[in-house]
Design a protein around this nucleic acid. Structure first.
Length: 834
RNA sequence: GCCGGGGUGGCGGAACUGGUAGACGCAGCGGACUUAAAAUCCGCUGGUGCUUAGCACUGUGAGGGUUCAAGUCCCUCCCUCGGCACCA
């Protein structure tokens, strides 16, 4: 078995030695590089899909070390959350035991991959020494008036028995368990993220090294929309309906008003309009409709006339007021002016409206009306049917109308957001208890810092209750307490925090994981952050990344830190699929790395994972192709093993390239090109390990041919052997971030220092990146007709002459007139002839 | 519906700023080694046709266009993946 890399012993040996290598000295920040992987939920087992993330990060950390950077690569556990609780219910063990077991197991898995971290900085969000500070963060937000409690209609997942944030509801279903979400009125804690909406939006522009699509997703999610609110007075009433619109230019065409069926004014209006009974049943009906139609693309637009009228402030006309399901209570003001001629939804609404509503076109492509519209006219154009505004461009009219209505106090400019405040209460057990105390006389009082953490009791029945309360509510011992303000009897808040609160600040804790005086070390954090490179999955594009940005902005404004974006560079790797779908436990298509590592060794699995495709794209896992990576690793090993006698302590340095003949210079040149390609591919910003590896495979192939065919090498010529050693040395250095075990071993066996990762990266000898001659392509009328070898510094004239001398070319242009010759030195000559 | 990514051999994927399409790997075929097989090493490998050491034609989802030259740029369309979706 000498022909195979003996990974069994060697992998382990290096994994132990590297522990020291990854221990980071935080004081040295001259060339700091904070290399962060998203910390995982400790679900028990890592599959090869997770592996991609960590292998990319590990390879990156290693190559950065070789670049001379002081690399901080910490790891921890996002260890609060439902699965622990569910597993615990199922297996009758404590969530903490289940979680800690999984953590231990996953740590072993990382090591087996050769994925190393500075474990002296390990954190776990479920441990009291961590969640103490998550609770501290909550109290800080509360003191800044950024955490508040409110009765609200919230998303309730009946199966998870908890409320969810908007971000966790996908298409009306629970993101986790796919159950239909119900709306429940509950008193809940929110973080006022909306205050930061503009900051979060604007600062996306600073994040130049983030993937564009992540920024786009966040932009859409924040959904900033500038417009105007217009007051529509109700006829025979003092009541006013404020409509939000982004198209106030269409107001002369507003022929009705629609308000959300669940609007607080709805009941009053139907009473006023003497239509209370039917109105109430419509409100019920609209509620049902919303639930049913959530999934549909085509939605009906049913409405109900309230019997009331309002005055269009631009025309002075009375227009009817409707209730309808297509107006959303939780966006804008919940009241909309209906402009059937210029809004498709309003247009559809009037088609089957119970009472006739006029469609008045007020913007047209010319100054004439377009006749009967068959759909809403949405383009910009010229104002018509609009009195004094006729003839103006609609965008100009928009400003004028706004100014004039504003002057009368009937309109004002506003900005609305799609982003809602972040609902953070969860009615589940396995999370950080919300550190608040409810006192009848003092209200909600935060737990003083000296009393933190509020320990999550482990002796409660944590079966979900489904009544809108957390399992903690059942524990008198937990609930009963004393008000920190007045000393009277009081009750603890029994909800726990969304786990995204835990992960919104963890990257600050790695600098001082064991500090029990403060959440993070201000000085160290300011020196080490923002994170130089964050690597993780695209699934966190909105939730985790937006929340973390928010918390960092808050901490900065509160004076705790000096920077306002947590991650200056983000890389989102594609997922690994199997049979075309995402690898997941529930889909049953996961690939366990352990058998693969046992069969082929860690380096093979790493190389295959990196070689599978461009890292930002999804890739299909193929067991068979793993063999190819295995072969490559062993080809490198054999190259060393077969010629190990040639590597002695009396290594002759690389021979002078200027003195190498043609048979040798080719290998020298290939080595220079490989150095350049590997560095460009990985460090050029795109992390293209796949092409870097293929370059290394090419170099390996060249070396095989060299040792097989080069006469000098075969006859033991010293320079020929030195050249081989030189190329091997570079091959091993360049491959080491991807396949660290084998490279470290060869490095050691060939008489080098303690670790290859303290060896600097080689610099390519630029003079030799290009060959002395190259193949010039000769085309006639754009078709390749011949190829000739030419010296690299021939000028255009020479190249053209050579092309026209070529016998094949001559035969193609014979009898034709040469009209034009295009010469691109280094590439081709194209002769246009007819 | 809107926004964004993508579509290249049997497969995963290369291709700089428009300039040799298919690097590298998998699978396949042939050869060397072997009693034999595996492993290994070397070579071939997009398709079609022919007068087959070669040559020609064709080929990057479809159709048009720009250009001496298009996988790459422009227009129209199809498919696919992801995000948002009655947001006023």
């Amino acid at each position: 078995m000498k022909d195979f890399f003996p990974f069994m012993e060697i992998d382990k040996k290096w994994q132990e030695r590297w522990e020291e290598l990854f221990r980071c000295d935080l004081d040295d920040t001259d060339k700091k590089f904070y290399c962060l992987m998203m910390f995982p939920y400790p679900s028990g087992n890592l599959h090869v899909g997770h592996g991609r993330n960590y292998i990319i990060g590990d390879a990156l950390a290693r190559i950065k070390m070789m670049e001379g950077m002081n690399v901080l690569a910490p790891m921890g556990w996002d260890s609060f959350g439902l699965p622990a609780e569910n597993a615990a219910i199922k297996n009758k063990i404590k969530p903490s035991t289940w979680t800690e077991d999984n953590i231990a197991n996953m740590k072993r898995q990382f090591a087996k991959w050769g994925v190393m971290y500075d474990w002296s900085r390990e954190i776990a969000s479920c441990r009291p020494d961590y969640y103490k500070w998550t609770q501290w963060l909550f109290t800080q937000l509360f003191k800044a008036n950024l955490a508040y409690q409110e009765e609200a209609s919230v998303n309730w997942c009946p199966s998870c028995a908890t409320v969810l944030a908007n971000e966790q509801v996908v298409g009306g279903e629970c993101e986790r368990c796919k159950s239909q979400i119900e709306l429940k009125k509950l008193k809940q804690w929110f973080f006022r993220i909306t205050i930061y909406a503009d900051k979060l939006l604007d600062d996306l522009d600073i994040l130049k090294d983030w993937p564009g699509r992540v920024c786009t997703m966040q932009r859409n999610w924040i959904g900033r929309s500038e417009g105007v609110e217009v007051a529509f007075k109700l006829v025979e009433s003092d009541e006013v309906l404020n409509c939000f619109t982004t198209r106030v230019d269409t107001i002369p065409g507003a022929t009705f008003i629609v308000i959300a069926a669940d609007h607080p004014l709805a009941e009053e209006l139907i009473k006023k309009g003497w239509r209370e009974k039917e109105g109430k049943s419509f409100i019920e009906h609209a509620k049902q409709l919303r639930l049913q139609e959530r999934e549909k693309t085509e939605n009906t637009k049913e409405g109900f006339f309230t019997g009331c009228y309002a005055v269009n402030p631009s025309t002075g006309k009375n227009i009817p007021v409707f209730l309808a399901s297509y107006v959303l209570m939780d966006y804008g003001t919940g009241v909309v002016m209906g402009v059937p001629a210029h809004d498709q939804r309003d247009f559809e609404f009037v088609q089957d409206s119970p009472i006739e509503i006029p469609v008045i076109q007020v913007i047209a492509s010319s100054t004439k009306e377009d006749g009967e519209l068959d759909k809403a006219f949405l383009d910009d154009g010229i104002m018509i049917n609009s009195g004094e505004y006729n003839g103006l461009e609609n965008r100009v009219a928009m400003e004028k109308i706004t100014d004039e209505l504003s002057a009368q106090g009937l309109a004002w400019r506003v900005v609305h957001y799609r982003l809602k405040d972040w609902l953070i209460s969860r009615q589940r057990y396995w999370g950080a208890p919300i550190p608040m105390i409810h006192c009848d006389s003092c209200g909600a009082v935060p737990v003083p810092e000296k009393d933190l953490p509020v320990i999550l009791p482990d002796d409660v029945d944590f079966m979900p209750r489904g009544d809108g309360k957390s399992p903690l509510a059942a524990s008198d011992e937990f609930v009963k307490t004393i008000c920190p303000r007045c000393g009277g009897d009081a009750r603890r808040d029994t909800d726990t925090m969304d786990t995204f609160v835990d992960s919104s600040w963890y990257f600050l804790r790695y600098m001082s994981p064991n500090d029990d005086e403060k959440p993070f070390d201000r000085d160290l954090v300011n020196r080490w952050l923002p994170v130089n490179q964050y690597v993780g999955g695209i699934e966190h594009a909105i939730l985790h990344l937006l929340y973390s940005r928010f918390i960092v902005k808050f901490l900065r404004d509160a004076g705790h830190i000096d920077f306002d974006e947590p991650f200056s560079n983000l890389f989102t790797q594609g997922m690994i699929t199997r049979n075309g779908s995402k690898m997941s436990k529930s889909a049953g298509n996961t690939v366990d790395p352990n058998p693969l590592i046992e069969k082929y060794g860690a380096d093979t699995v790493r190389v295959y994972t990196l070689f599978i495709g461009p890292p930002e794209k999804d890739a299909e896992w193929n067991d068979r192709s793993v063999e190819g990576a295995f072969r490559f690793i062993n080809r490198v090993w054999r190259l060393y093993e077969k010629y190990n006698g040639l590597f002695g302590s009396s290594d002759k340095e690389c021979p002078d390239p200027a003195k190498l003949d043609e048979d040798h210079i080719e290998v020298y040149r290939k080595t220079q090109q490989t150095i350049q390609r590997v560095k460009d591919d990985i460090l050029g910003g795109s992390f293209h390990f796949n092409t870097a590896i293929s370059a290394l495979m090419e170099l390996t192939n060249s070396l095989y041919l060299y040792v097989d065919e080069n006469d000098g090498f075969k006859s033991g010529n010293e320079d020929s052997i030195a050249l081989f050693r030189y190329s091997m040395k570079n091959l091993v250095i360049l491959l080491s971030p991807m396949a660290p075990h084998i490279c470290e071993e060869i490095w050691e066996r060939t008489g080098h220092g303690e670790t290859i990762f303290k060896e600097g990266l080689p610099v390519a000898d630029e003079k030799y990146l290009r060959a002395d001659t190259y193949t010039l392509v000769l085309q006639v009328n754009g078709k390749i007709r011949s190829r000739i070898d030419v010296e690299k510094d021939l000028d255009k004239k020479d190249l053209e002459r050579r092309a026209l001398e070529d016998p094949k070319i001559i035969s193609f242009i014979e009898g034709k007139i040469v009209r034009k010759v295009i010469t691109i030195p280094g590439k081709l000559v194209n002769i246009v002839a007819n």
